[in-house]
Design a protein around this nucleic acid. Structure first.
Lengths: 217, 217, 217, 217
DNA sequence: CATGAATGAGGCTTCATTCAT
DNA sequence: AATGAATGAAGCCTCATTCAT
């Protein structure tokens, strides 16, 4: 797609200096995208923030979109990995749900603004919409698998449409965290996580014992 | 009396012709905002779509923002009214939840794109954020009141934080509909609404009888 | 020049109401020209200030320039008349100069801002330059005549170029008053007038007795 | 380090090419301001005259005002320096006044149009008014000091208010040259200068010998 | 007479992108 | 590899003027 005699936009630079410069541009881009939004960020701003000359940006990237793409791809990986349940063996279903929610909260806190940037773009740009949906799908598939496992074990009714339930419950948590970290709709954090867990579990028909909510402040 | 040839920003024009023109601009604006997004819509596009000259837009509005504000204000009212439960007397809790979700789906279908436009702007513009949160609050307060009523009647555990639950469950449905109408994440519609109702009811601890889900495809 | 089937721009209206409207437009124009300058005054501003509709302006005037022209013509007449020395018989030459300066000061005070408006336009518009020079000429011719009279009476040296002296001394006073009323370069008023008189008289070789300056503050 | 592609407003460009471009813009600006006035000069005109692209102007200046400011500042310095009396030792008071007027005439001839531009703006823009008054003050303070010196030596009456006299006489010459170079009110040049000197000297009470005016036409 | 809606050319500013060094 | 100057299309806003009622 890109002309062969063009600067290798997007490719890893061969020298250490080049790598440092490229990293500075990415970091500056992320900061600015999050601070003022994707569209409101100028190439000039990025170069300035990275303490580089204007033209340098074009040495490494063809456009802002390319940077955002790269940023999102790497963050998507990090998000999914970070939200993996490590030793999920011990604990009952509720404990697992709680652990997942807790982890998601932590991951969302770090990445909410970048997610918001993606959302800003995804509404109108199909390629970013795909990217966003792909990441979402990773989470939803896991949710769906978990629900199906619970259905097989009889903990959750078989009549529930696992795909839809996964989308709805996953969306509930995703939406909740974006409202929290982006729009400032906050509550007591422990209270919030436990309520989400409670709702999620109960929604699937997993009874939550009274005492599990006892530590509310 | 008002400054001639100055934007009367929101004031009703004194002549019938003026009222028609203003309405045409608003309609064209809404169409375009929804089609290509707020930022991507040019004043020139709006004027052209309304079959008016460029300058005419400024005869009635100071900026795109003012139009969006007016659009959103009127739509917010319509949305809230349209989602009121009319004869809520008959039917049990689950039936009520189902009715609300069904209505919300219908309202969201008509307004999802405008909501998306507001979301696009609200992330970076505080005044639109306020507007968005205000509308959201209308819904959440109703949810919260309903949950509290159920708690008083003993149908729902008193330990549940009604505010958080209202935010989470309301957000679940809002998010679900936006994914559906904006990002094309669709399912069987009846299936989706019933699953949302099921999850919502169960989440609050209201048992849903098996047969109520029997008509799933 | 103007089309016969056009509204009689600039002509006197036939009805009383029309005359009132026209006067209101002229007054509003003068106020605004003086307040914010000719170029910075919009037709819209004038109509608004006159509490009339936009289009009404064009009933009476073809453009701002026409109004300014009319304004200036009438003010020029007033200025010249008001600065006529009435009973110039009594009093010596110095007293006469003093009287003229005193009157000019008073007239300038009322009209300095309109003069400034004319100056604003005259630099680039030849027709207003002519107008400005014509008014100036009225004053200068009088000055010149006075100087020549003094030369004939032997009070002033015959070698002095009366035209240039008239231009220089008249300009001195004109410039002084504009600096005063427009740019705020003020002194004690009596002091200023007497110094101007003193300089003017002395410049022409008319000795001013010490005591005539004695009342300085 | 400085924001790339952002107006560096007044900062010297780092490259030689940049310096040349900036100078070309300033020169083109001055030419056009003088030719057609400040307000009537378009950024597009400046760029075209300098044989540069539209946007290049904004690479170096934030607005026309900034350019005018810079132009005036540099010209003000030049004017004041150029009008310094170099070997003022020899010659009597009248000779000195004559030398000053002669120099002022020469300086005014070169800069009258720029002064006119400043005057055009100064009436409505306070920052330019300040600038204008500052330059004027330089001249007036010198005049005042000279008059006071003459008062100390007894050549000029002590009762004369030196400040006002300096303002009036300085204004006389300034106004005279502007009428001359801007509005075309010209006379024989030698005649004019000598008359100004004569009036100035006489006004202060310094007798001018007949023969010094003998060459009048 | 008076109104105010409609027009659209004109001027300003921004900024992604290219290019020469 | 890095720089920053130069470009010009694109979009915004203003406002004198025309026109229909």
């Amino acid at each position: 797609m890109s002309a062969p005699n063009r600067p290798s936009s997007g490719l890893a630079p061969s020298t250490a200096r080049g790598r440092r410069t490229r990293a500075a541009l990415i970091e500056a881009s992320r900061d600015l995208f999050e601070e003022r939004g994707f569209r409101e960020t100028r190439i000039a701003d990025i170069a300035e923030r990275a303490k580089l000359a204007y033209g340098t940006f074009y040495h490494y990237f063809e456009s802002k979109e390319v940077v955002l793409n790269e940023l999102f791809t790497s963050v998507a990986g990090e998000m999914f990995n970070a939200s993996q349940l490590r030793d999920s063996a011990n604990g009952d279903a509720v404990a697992k749900i709680d652990a997942v929610n807790r982890q998601y909260f932590a991951v969302a806190e770090r990445n909410a603004w970048l997610i918001a940037v993606i959302d800003e773009v995804a509404v109108r740009d199909d390629s970013f919409r795909q990217l966003k949906l792909q990441l979402r799908d990773l989470f939803l598939r896991r949710n769906e698998a978990n629900i199906k496992k619970l259905q097989e074990s009889g903990a959750v009714e078989a009549t529930v449409n696992a795909k839809i339930a996964a989308a709805a419950l996953g969306g509930m948590v995703e939406h909740f965290t974006q409202m929290w970290f982006i729009h400032g709709v906050t509550f007591d954090r422990e209270d919030a996580i436990h309520t989400l867990t409670f709702l999620w579990a109960q929604a699937l028909g997993i009874a939550v014992h009274d005492n599990s909510m006892n530590f509310l402040p």
